[in-house]
């Protein structure tokens, strides 16, 4: 039972420790699928050479628009669920920097010397950029699609933002996928939901200490708004 395996301070280095529950993983992967479809269809709509190769512009655009409308749904449904407690707590964790974490981002710093919580600061920045991008892209994409009520300037501005944000999303997602696939244990945290005890202890010591010290507190209390 991975869910219970985190409790207690001892245990073998390879013990599974739950990192993301099934709801979080479902939210992550459905959102990731939407992002993938949007990035692929967006690239076709944006890059002339791809467009000529693929054709079917109307179909590609329809897929892009409807997938875009669905993009925020998994996250919102997950957050609003009663079962979404861990997801909500992790969003709280992603939104705050712990001790030393601002320093962690600076070049030339010994990152190993800064004990991290559940997420590293890069993951937090990535999550916040992509999370906000969902809403920025939804808003600007809607202006581009239902353009009639908007002035030329607003349409041009929306297109401008949509284009530059898309470039940022490509960079951010590429970096995220590269880093995730270069750490197989961390990747398994999102595919199967579990990491090893050794990984948690060395890579995320403050998280590990918190979930093993006393399984009832402080991790299992809702203190998002404290």
């Amino acid at each position: 039972m991975p869910a219970d395996a985190g409790a207690g301070g001892g245990g073998a280095a390879t013990d599974p420790i739950e990192r993301f529950d099934p709801l979080e993983r479902a939210v992550h992967w459905t959102t990731a699928a939407c992002f993938g479809i949007l990035m692929a269809t967006g690239a076709v709509l944006y890059i002339g050479q791809l467009e000529v190769l693929v054709g079917n512009r109307a179909l590609v655009r329809t897929i892009h628009v409807y997938t875009g409308l669905l993009l925020a749904v998994p996250l919102l449904v997950g957050v609003l669920q009663r079962r979404g407690r861990l997801l909500r707590r992790d969003l709280g964790r992603l939104s705050r920097f712990g001790p030393g974490e601002a320093r962690w981002l600076r070049p030339g710093v010994d990152r190993g010397a800064i004990p991290l919580g559940k997420f590293n600061p890069g993951q937090k920045l990535n999550a916040m950029f992509l999370g906000s991008a969902i809403f920025v892209m939804l808003a600007t994409g809607s202006i581009m699609h239902w353009f009639m009520p908007f002035s030329d300037d607003v349409r041009t501005g929306a297109t401008f933002v949509h284009d530059w944000w898309a470039l940022g999303i490509w960079l951010s997602v590429t970096a995220h996928v590269y880093l995730a696939t270069s750490d197989p244990v961390a990747l398994r945290g999102m595919t199967r939901g579990v990491v090893t005890r050794a990984w948690a202890r060395s890579k995320r010591p403050r998280w590990y200490a918190a979930i093993t010290a006393d399984p009832e507190a402080p991790e299992d209390q809702e203190r998002l708004h404290s």
């Binding site: 939104s95 705050r96 920097f97 001790p99 974490e101 601002a102 403050r206 200490a209 402080p218 991790e219």
Partner: peptide
């Protein structure tokens, strides 16, 4: 912008992400 109080996780740290 760093938290003085840490509770094992950054929940009480500076809301940089937010």
């Amino acid at each position: 912008g760093e938290a003085v109080v840490g509770d094992g996780d950054a929940r009480r740290g500076a809301p940089v992400g937010r």
